[in-house]
Amino acid sequence: MRIRLNGKEVVLPDGATVDDLVRHYGLDGEPVAIERNGQIVDREAFAGEVLAEGDVIEMARFVGGG
């Protein structure tokens, strides 16, 4: 399936979850906020949130340094 992640088209295997996406980018365990089609996804729901063709995902890393 194809989704848009932070404005860029990304191809993912069918059945991929938000958690898979986060892991794919090496961000599991990192403070990230995910918006799926305009809605913030609960952190606890990442593993159960199955992505669908055409989803628009925004992924924001909460950066530590200052």
Binding site: G29, E30, P31, V32, A33, I40, R43, E44, A60, R61, F62, V63, G64, G65, G66
Partner: peptide, 27 residues
Amino acid sequence: GAVEAHGTSAFLRPGHTPCLVCLIGYG
């Protein structure tokens, strides 16, 4: 927060926006 050349910022208002824990849990 900022490192390297990237950063993130948000203005959080209790009752109006999610709080930090809503957004990133205790992760």
